[in-house]
């Protein structure tokens, strides 16, 4: 299970809309070998079909798709947007923090979600993520 590995983090990504943001975060999963390109397309399809519910907290989106769509290992890629973009969520727009979740059917998936969830339930951590200058700083939050 991987979260905040250097190869899974982009702290300064420029995008013009929600789809580019999902693609940008998803590409990190592909480049690091955690998922196939087909998984990014599946995340985009899920967003188009099911809508902006993936913005599950103010300014935080968690795009994901089904494990069968091409995930090799449970991982979360993180993209911080230079300029926030709208996902179309009534309450939680605009989004600047995008966590692309590489779902897997393993127990690692549950462990990963638990780690991510306990991290993000503390507002101080969200502020630290927003102001972090390196992937190392993010990794330190997990310790």
């Amino acid at each position: 299970m991987r979260l905040f590995d250097k190869s899974l983090v982009n702290l300064d990504i420029e995008v013009k809309d929600a789809e580019e943001a999902i693609r940008g975060a998803g590409q990190l999963l592909v480049d690091s070998g955690a998922a196939e390109a087909s998984y990014v397309e599946a995340m985009l399809a899920a967003y188009r079909e099911k809508g902006p519910y993936i913005v599950i907290a103010p300014h935080i989106a968690l795009p994901h798709a089904k494990a069968e769509s091409g995930v090799h290992e449970a991982a979360v890629a993180f993209a911080r947007l230079k300029e926030p973009v709208k996902f179309g969520h009534a309450d939680n727009d605009p989004v600047d923090l995008v966590f692309a979740l590489g779902s897997s059917s393993s127990s690692d998936h549950i462990k990963l979600l638990r780690t991510l969830s306990s991290l993000l339930t503390d507002p101080a951590n969200i502020e630290a993520i927003r102001s972090a200058k390196s992937a190392e700083e993010l990794e330190n939050l997990l310790k």
Binding site: A46, E49, K50, G51, Y53, I54, I56, L62, H64, A65, K66, A67, L101, S103, H109, I110, L113, L116, S117
Partner: peptide, 9 residues
């Protein structure tokens, strides 16, 4: 939406 990610959180 999918029953795998955010609903588990």
């Amino acid at each position: 939406g999918l029953g795998q990610g955010t609903s588990l959180i």
